[in-house]
Design a protein around this nucleic acid. Structure first.
Length: 89
DNA sequence: CAATAATAGTCCC
DNA sequence: GGGACTATTATTG
């Protein structure tokens, strides 16, 4: 677990419920504007996919590129969180 | 729209 | 250390 990965995980944890962020945004937020690939690499080897909500991280244009537990699962999770957010609104 | 180059970090040898 | 890998992105035809 490198410092870079830690920064990525922390940043991902700060994403509000139902919100999504792009890999580029994450990379920029941790001070590595051109490391979106490394971000993806870190999330890929994510030890705890449910506690570090990598399903809130999407590609550009809010497209889902990949997910350790399957894109279908990711899509459902995002949908679910959006629903929860609307419910709490 | 499809193919490709660029780029930054980590992993495996 | 060098080369390959990646859940990307931007560019070119």
């Amino acid at each position: 677990m490198t410092l870079f990965e830690k920064k990525v995980l922390r940043q991902v944890l700060k994403i509000p419920l139902g919100e999504v962020r792009t890999y580029a945004q994450i990379a920029r937020a941790i001070g590595h504007p051109r490391s979106y690939r490394a971000v993806a690499n870190a999330l890929r080897k994510n030890p705890y996919p449910f506690f570090v909500p990598c399903h809130r991280v999407v590609g550009c244009g809010k497209d889902m590129r990949g997910y350790a537990l399957g894109r279908a699962m990711k899509r459902d999770l995002i949908k679910f969180e959006k629903k929860v957010r609307d419910m709490l609104k």
